[in-house]
Amino acid sequence: MRNRSFISNFRWLRSGLLLSVLAVLAIEWQLGRTLPGHYFRHEVDDLLYSLDHRSYDARVLSLGNSVGRQLDQGIHRLDRGFLRPMSSNAALEMTGQYFLLCRYLARNPAPESLILWVDNPFYGDLRSVYTENYIQRCFLRWREIGLLAWWRGSPTFTASMISYRLLPSFRYRVDIQKDIPILGVREVNLAPQVAFGGRPQSARKQNALARWWQRWVHGGQSISTTAFERLLALCEERGIRIYLIPAPISSRVALDRGPQQGRAEINERLAELQKKFDVLHYETESRVYPDNEFVDGTHFVEGVVLARAAEYRDLLQERMKP
């Protein structure tokens, strides 16, 4: 018991360190109320803030990657009542899309249909270089932290999320640094090393323990697969029809890929899932467009967005016919 004598002598109550901890908790509590409405690093921050502070009553909800974002924004501009555009970024993987849908449904009535602009819903284990910025820093409800702790099985991954949850100053540190001109932080959407001209963190490797955990929790499947199945089950339960649309690609990419390389396996797995979840509908192939319509090989040039959005609106209307 000698080791614990410091607990019983109560001198630690006058400790500067302890009082500092209490002061930090008070300051962070206050910052937690102000910073999320002050700093918006990327579209996911915007989206989550809107979901927390606004109400929606969409008939069709659109989630997905950044190409989907171009298209659903285009459709929204063409036909405002058709869908609620909430596509954001592929970095969210299916896990982030599932959390977005959960947050949407927690405050709003269920839509009739959900459009998912996703190339491969089975891809992703939350190990990309973007995971920190788009998942760990954004989805910080205790339920989300708990679920990711289980799915990912990494104490450090979870500890990082908890610290973001408890310490908003830490969560928004790059944004705060950007407000100090002398520090020269210009880009907050990247890891700070990149913002300062350094190299980005490399993708996280999976060690043997992590592989074992993934086999045990996910049956050897990816985390995205688990999230996708959860999303399907949720939609099934709420009667939401899902339309999974792969992103359009340039003719050069199509040529590189060959005859829809890898798509066959995805379609096979989707067909399996369709037997289990009859709310699932999907397009089997990506549409192909000329190279000059893409600005970086992936995203449309601004000038063609509306035309392509109109095509996809027609496609969706066609598919959604009863």
Binding site: R14, G16, L17, L19, S20, A23, V24, I27, E132, L167, S169, F170, R173, V174, I176, Q177, A191, P192, Q193, Q201
Partner: peptide, 23 residues
């Protein structure tokens, strides 16, 4: 004095939390 110590600890803590590198 206690107040000065607490102020210093807070300054150190926020120096680490806000100006620390991402990784």
């Amino acid at each position: 004095p206690l107040l000065a110590r607490v102020t210093l600890y807070l300054a150190l803590f926020y120096g680490i939390a806000i100006f620390g590198m991402q990784n």
